[in-house]
Design a protein around this nucleic acid. Structure first.
Lengths: 80, 80
DNA sequence: CACCATTTGTTCGTATGTATG
DNA sequence: GCATACATACGAACAAATGGT
């Protein structure tokens, strides 16, 4: 998956969609850490601020839990 | 204080007036940090751009000094 | 204990595009 | 055309937490 800067959806929403898919599909297991913002910055042509904005979306959705100093982890219980 | 979107004065000018009053009245002491643009965004129904525009007015007036990465501070010497 | 690298969080500065009156 | 307002994006700097040396 790649980001289209000229797509209808804003890049940060596109990235959120990509990462959400990786989580829901099970590509990244619950409790596992996802790539750091710096690593995502290398994988996608976006600034760290934009990366973080996408991650904030997923945190709001309850898919990710942050651990400052350690990283971002896939939530254990996305549903209840 | 609140912002009136339909007021005679543009919202960013209204906000500048409100914040100027807080500074001149001493509600926010010289050298002290003012609420971040994000916090002001929560307090007032304006976009960050508009918030910033109001703050730029106060910076131009010499009431505020910016410290990138830290915040905006009330100037020590509003006058000279 | 000190030091440092990594990582997330926060903040301001600047710029572009879009929309409205 | 201009002023105003919002959404988005990138850059930079600083802070705090963590973990290793």
């Amino acid at each position: 998956m790649t980001i289209d800067p000229d797509g209808v959806k804003a890049p940060y929403r596109q990235l959120a969609d990509i990462l959400r898919e990786r989580i829901i599909s099970g590509e990244i297991q619950p409790g596992r850490r996802i790539p750091s913002q710096t690593e995502l910055e290398q994988e996608f042509p976006l600034s760290r601020n934009t990366i973080k904005k996408a991650l904030d979306v997923l945190k709001d959705e309850g898919l990710l839990v942050s651990a400052p100093g350690r990283g971002l982890f896939v939530a254990e219980q996305p549903d209840t």
